[in-house]
């Protein structure tokens, strides 16, 4: 028994030591992130440091994947760069936690709330409290159902993403192509809009048939399995293009092709609607992914711009602002890779 406990204690010790290490490294990472976005926002030199005296609350939905971490860090850094005081927290992907977090921020007398709402319905009570307190809200990446509760929502235009990829396919495969679509979680807004965008361009065109449409739940491992199975059915010559809906799944597809000895980019071209992270873009640069429509986490600059209109110049703002997404192909991948940190 004593031996077992001694071993357990050692285990705890090792893990906590490892944990300390990670904290340090992530700290250095975030400071470098600040410096980077500081540069990008310094373009607006005339209104530089207009944020002095304002207190901005940032309520992230969760902090468990690279997109959300980058997104939160970029927004916080952008507001700090204009001299505003920023208080932020994250909701652990839980609606109740995020509501409590918003209340915490309100108690600290914030002038503006920037939030990625966890849910369209569940967050409404928190939004109503903000309205009562006279705190304007900028939604990031998602909105809530009642549009009167927030100033604007900065979101990826998923339909446009699908359309861009559709157009790219038509330009690069003028003689037609057999397309397989591997989608995200069926029924999610992202999945529906991205598929619709693609269908807007190539739907009903007999030169570009979608021969199979399967879901991989946004997971790399599932995308790999689904691709292997589909190639088993149609053969490597029976598929020209695989369109998917995020970089994770695109990487799973590449892994499946590699495992089957099929050359991605030559035998089968992979296109992705969404993400454009470092891993994905470097595969575009290497010619292994055809194109990626970004859904950028770098929304700090846009959020600051809107905050200026709301807090200082009191201009009216559109309810929906599409985020500044890039379209990554082999022509610009090398170049854009330098600006991508996640």
């Amino acid at each position: 028994m004593k031996k077992v406990f001694a071993l357990l204690l050692i285990l705890c010790l090792t893990i906590s030591m490892a944990a300390c290490e990670t904290n340090e490294t992530s700290d250095t990472k975030s400071t470098s992130g600040t410096a980077k976005s500081g540069e990008t926002t310094s373009g607006a030199s005339d209104k530089e440091l207009w944020g002095k005296g304002f207190k901005i609350g940032v309520a992230a939905a969760h902090y468990t994947n690279a997109w959300n971490v980058t997104n939160t860090q970029d927004i916080v850094a952008a507001f700090e760069a204009i001299g505003a005081e920023v208080v932020w927290n994250e909701g652990n992907n839980d609606t109740a936690t995020q509501i409590a977090n918003v209340e915490d921020l309100l108690a600290q007398d914030i002038d503006l709330l920037v939030i990625k709402p966890k849910e369209e319905e569940g967050l409404i009570p928190a939004f109503e409290q903000c309205q009562k307190a006279g705190v304007p809200i900028i939604c990031i990446d998602r909105k809530v159902r009642d549009t009167s509760l927030y100033v604007t929502a900065i979101m990826t235009d998923n339909v446009a993403g699908g359309e861009m990829v559709g157009k790219w396919i038509m330009e690069n495969f003028p003689d037609g192509a057999k397309i397989v679509e591997i989608t995200g979680t069926p029924g999610s807004t992202g999945q529906i809009e991205r598929s619709r965008g693609l269908a807007n361009i190539i739907g009903g065109n007999s030169k570009y048939p979608i021969i199979a449409n399967q879901s991989a739940d946004n997971m790399r491992s599932k995308a790999q399995t689904v691709t292997e199975n589909l190639i088993q059915t149609y053969g490597k010559d029976g598929i020209d293009i695989i369109v998917t809906q995020n970089d994770e799944m695109a990487m799973g597809i590449l892994q499946a092709l590699d495992g089957l000895g099929i050359e991605p980019g030559k035998d089968i071209v992979v296109c992705s609607i969404g993400d454009a992270n470092m891993e994905g873009v470097s595969e575009v640069a290497a010619g292994r992914i055809g194109c990626i429509y970004e859904s950028t986490p770098y929304l700090g600059a846009q959020a600051v711009e809107i905050a200026y209109k709301v807090l200082v110049s009191k201009e009216s703002v559109e309810k929906y602002i599409p985020s500044n997404n890039r379209f990554i192909t082999i022509e610009n991948a090398e170049e854009e890779l330098k600006n991508i940190t996640w």
Binding site: I15, A18, A19, T22, T25, S26, K29, Y63, T64, N65, A66, N68, V69, R220, E248, M251, E279, W342
Partner: peptide, 13 residues
Amino acid sequence: GFTVMLAKSTVIP
């Protein structure tokens, strides 16, 4: 939780 923490919340290629 430990896994996510050690991986710093990111996918590791």
